[in-house]
């Protein structure tokens, strides 16, 4: 693991006097899995939106390698190699998973400007699309509208879409949110598989998932970094325990128990 691939310095986002993100410094090491945790309202999703250009920071700077990402638009950030998934499943209801993947893959090719051509021109991306769907276990449902997919399958499609951009940095916003145990295991395996050759930043509430995936954990509270370090250190940090107390101590404990098993 070399220097930081993604770096935020003094990041601030203010909404009408309320500082959702209040001076965050973040260094994400190249090739690592970096988890952002913290109680609800800690600023995790806001930070994600800042890193991906969906929100403009009130102050601070974001860098990808030696490239400045501050103030870039979401589509530019995506093109530069930072792909994201969404916390709330965010798909095109009428399109099939295969069509989703075709769109994600066609993005850089310029073919999507050709309004005079048949949409069969997108079939050239079908092979790769099916590979990606296969990777996330969606091949069997490749041809039904995404709106009719079961919840766990929609989350898998989210992940496949982000992967289709072949990003340097993959930002996953609660990839296991609302999933049952089986789907969680599947997702963890999948993230393990796709982290090869890239960097992953994830927001995650489930401490079990964090312990299994993350090399580095950043704990946020009230828009600030409360603690940072490997999971085992963070878990025993009294400040972190205090922050979570009354929030979800049972959840964190349960996760450990699961690991012990």
């Amino acid at each position: 693991m070399d220097g930081p691939v993604l770096r935020a310095q003094g990041l601030v986002k203010e909404f009408r006097g309320f500082r959702a993100v209040d001076g965050v410094d973040l260094d994400v090491a190249d090739g690592s899995v970096h988890a952002l945790v913290g109680p609800n309202g800690a600023g995790k999703t806001t930070l994600f939106n800042l890193l991906t250009g969906f929100l403009k920071p009130s102050a601070g700077r974001i860098q990808l390698g030696d490239r400045n990402l501050t103030g870039r638009r979401p589509e530019q950030v995506a093109r530069l190699g930072v792909a994201r998934s969404f916390q709330i499943t965010s798909l095109f209801a009428q399109l099939t998973p295969r069509e989703h993947l075709q769109l994600a893959l066609a993005g850089g090719s310029g073919i999507t400007w050709r309004f005079w051509r048949s949409d069969r021109a997108l079939d050239r991306f079908s092979v790769r699309a099916m590979e990606l769907l296969d990777q996330v276990g969606l091949a069997a449902q490749a041809h039904i509208p995404a709106g009719t997919l079961a919840y766990g399958r929609k989350r898998a499609l989210e992940l496949a879409l982000a992967l289709a951009l072949d990003p340097k940095v993959l930002l996953l916003d609660e990839p296991t949110a609302g999933m049952g145990v089986e789907d969680i295991d599947r997702t963890v395996d999948l993230v393990q598989k796709v982290r090869q050759g890239r960097t992953v930043v994830l927001v995650e509430h489930n401490m079990n998932v964090v312990s299994r995936l993350a090399d580095q954990v950043t704990v946020l509270q009230n828009g600030r970094v409360l603690a940072e370090g490997p999971y085992d250190e963070i878990r025993d940090d009294p400040r972190v325990i205090a922050a979570y107390l009354g929030e979800a101590p049972a959840d964190a404990g349960g996760g450990d128990a699961h690991v012990a098993n």
Partner: peptide, 27 residues
């Protein structure tokens, strides 16, 4: 023709979910 072109497919995706289309790199 426009509706059933690659461009038309992007339009439908923008209609259904503009933020997602942006996250896929579409201006």
């Amino acid at each position: 023709r426009i509706v059933r072109s690659p461009f038309g497919r992007v339009l439908v995706s923008i209609r259904d979910n503009p933020a997602r289309a942006q996250a896929l790199g579409y201006p």
